[in-house]
Nucleic acid binder design. Structure first.
Lengths: 208, 208
DNA sequence: TTCATGGTTGAATGAACATTCAAGCATTGA
DNA sequence: TCAATGCTTGAATGTTCATTCAACCATGAA
């Protein structure tokens, strides 16, 4: 129970928590360092002792998201559903459950940053990429677990990427309309697609 | 050949052009008014004579996007493909052709703004919504034109919204990876879905 | 000619921005 | 007890931000 560098460790997490929350709520450019300092209860010198710049802090936040991907995002899904294909829809449902109480005011923390800083901050883009790869990597693994319930010719990686597309594209529209409709619509169509794929793999190779 | 308010008209379009381009390239928050002024070759007083604030300028840019939706985006697609379903994929192809030469550095001008300012600027959100509605409205109309080539039970509006989802979600990933792969993947999966829908509508009601 | 109108000029404003740094403090090992 | 180390303090820096405004100018009507 004795952390190696107690004060600094605590400061670090307080800063990371505040920064992550504010970047998510307001975006990167719209969040002032002074706000992060206030919310974290920390002075400028402490922050700049740990992170040389606001950009470096953003990088740290994104590394943290990568670390938290499994414990926060994927583990609950794996616990809720055991069937690999149902896990995919449980994942999509989880995002809905997270964001619909706030009327989709926030959106995906990674997706937001992707569009805001992807091409202005070259050192940040790979970290966003890494988060997306991790996310769709889980989906791709589940699709492989589904084995021959899906057509053999189906490109699992393509479909995994499409699941992420549905998540991000649906959330973007939900955010713009402050309603779940577009998100639900895209998920419903994805479900339809899965049903057709599953039927084709089990039922018949009627078409060619 | 004599415009009603020549100087002001010209100033207005120069400002709108510069603002639209810079918001697209750098984002709204990252674009300084001074940069817009420089690029438009205009002085602060002139801008603030036309638009009371930077936010109002953004609103004007988004209204302009709505006006340009048909002439710039939809008309070329309608010219290139006459089949309603092919128009959908021609539209998706057109975005690819626009953004792949720049290695997907820019992304969708509306989508970017959607995630950056949707919930910080209440007066802006409806204008983003309006653009999305217009876009998916065209797709929905094409889907209806396809008539019974698609299953009767299919929700045309849902699918139209999904096409937009594919476009935005795919572009977001393309932007993060600086590669067309994820965009192409999502479009390919959408095409598969359409093929299955078309087959089911023509071929058989084998499944229930 | 004179006045009114609408657009333009560009220096000035104050607030907010990210960042710095000299000074101080607590904890540790010697 | 001392020195060293690493973290914290918070006022200060210089820059950039969006916005203002008094003065100026071109145009057209009276």
């Amino acid at each position: 129970m004795s952390p190696p560098t107690p004060a600094s460790q605590d400061t670090r997490t307080r800063i990371l928590d505040a920064a992550a929350r504010l970047f998510h709520e307001q975006g990167f450019n719209a969040t002032g360092v002074s706000t992060i300092l206030r919310e974290a209860g920390v002075n400028p010198g402490s922050l700049y002792n740990l992170y040389p710049s606001k950009d470096a802090l953003l990088a740290a936040v994104l590394e943290r998201y990568t670390e938290l991907l499994h414990p926060i995002v994927m583990a609950p899904v794996e616990a809720k559903a055991s069937d690999p294909i149902e896990r995919i829809f449980a994942l999509l449902q989880q995002y809905r459950d997270w964001f619909s109480p706030l009327e989709f005011r926030l959106g995906c923390p990674i997706g937001n940053l992707a569009l805001e800083v992807a091409d202005s901050h070259p050192e940040i883009r790979p970290l966003i990429q890494q988060n997306f790869d991790g996310w769709s990597g889980y989906v791709e693994r589940w699709l492989r677990e589904a084995g021959d319930r899906l057509p053999r010719s189906l490109d699992r990686r393509q479909l995994a990427s499409t699941v992420l597309t549905v998540m991000e594209g649906g959330l973007m529209q939900a955010r713009s309309s402050r309603s779940a409709a577009a998100y639900d619509a895209s998920v419903a169509q994805l479900r339809q697609y899965f049903d057709l794929l599953l039927a084709r793999a089990s039922g018949g190779g009627k078409h060619t």
